[in-house]
């Protein structure tokens, strides 16, 4: 009988794989119902064992359980698109939320992973074992995000705290509910791509200036 954290962990991986499939070129235009069925179908395939192994088990063996932030991010990026043009105000808010979530993920990843793995003397990962200061800081961040109408940020943090309290995943550390390497790499990858584009524009602009 698998442990409850195995079930939730594998379900999270399987669901994420389903979501990722619906983001593939050619499937992005699927209607809401078709997206849901695709996610369910891919998730089922991911957990069905073949010769004792399933895709979800294999992926989880490397990545570990996914954080609530990843789940919220995936859901938001897939379902938040809607089917109509957003008003300028909605677009501004959504852009602000995306920027806020990305910034928090990127900064947290850059601070947490190197230090937790031994760069420097401080271990921020320890804060995740029930530090009142850490929880208070997160509450402030969540309230600020809510006040500034970046509710997706607040939602990701609140769901992470709830899941940690209920021991949704295998880990007993709050950081593992807030952040995982997949979403961190994704955000840092986006930052890297933007940096390359920015540098390219600067170089191209400079060359154009030389020509003039």
């Amino acid at each position: 009988m698998p442990a409850s954290t195995d079930i939730t962990g594998l379900a999270g991986i399987a669901g994420a794989l389903g979501w990722m499939v619906t983001a593939l070129p050619g499937l992005r235009g699927l209607s809401g119902q078709k997206v849901a069925w695709t996610v369910v179908a891919v998730s089922v395939v991911a957990v069905v064992p073949v010769a004792g192994w399933s895709v979800a088990v294999g992926v989880r063996g490397v990545t570990g359980d996914l954080s609530m932030t990843t789940m919220v991010w995936l859901g938001w990026s897939r379902w938040g698109r809607g089917t109509r043009e957003a008003t300028m105000e909605e677009a501004r808010l959504e852009e602000g939320s995306r920027y806020g979530l990305e910034t928090l993920i990127g900064v947290a990843a850059l601070a947490l992973y190197p230090m937790a793995l031994g760069i420097g003397r401080i271990d921020p990962y320890r804060l995740g074992y029930g530090s009142g200061w850490f929880l208070s800081t997160l509450l402030v961040v969540a309230l600020v995000a809510w006040f500034r109408r970046a509710e997706v940020v607040a939602l990701a943090i609140a769901l992470a705290v709830l899941a940690w309290t209920g021991r949704w995943n295998e880990s007993s550390n709050l950081w593992d509910y807030l952040l995982d390497p997949l979403v961190s790499f994704y955000v840092l990858g986006r930052w890297g791509a933007r940096g390359v584009k920015w540098a390219h524009r600067r170089i191209a602009g400079g060359l154009a200036g030389v020509k003039r």
């Binding site: 029930g130 530090s131 009142g132 929880l135 997160l138 509450l139 969540a142 309230l143 809510w146 509710e151 607040a154 939602l155 943090i157 609140a158 769901l159 705290v161 709830l162 940690w164 309290t165 209920g166 709050l174």
Partner: peptide
């Protein structure tokens, strides 16, 4: 959403 935040952090505080 505000209610969710408060419930989540209330439960988190108990665990802490």
């Amino acid at each position: 959403w505000l209610g969710l935040i408060l419930v989540a952090f209330g439960a988190g505080a108990v665990r802490c």
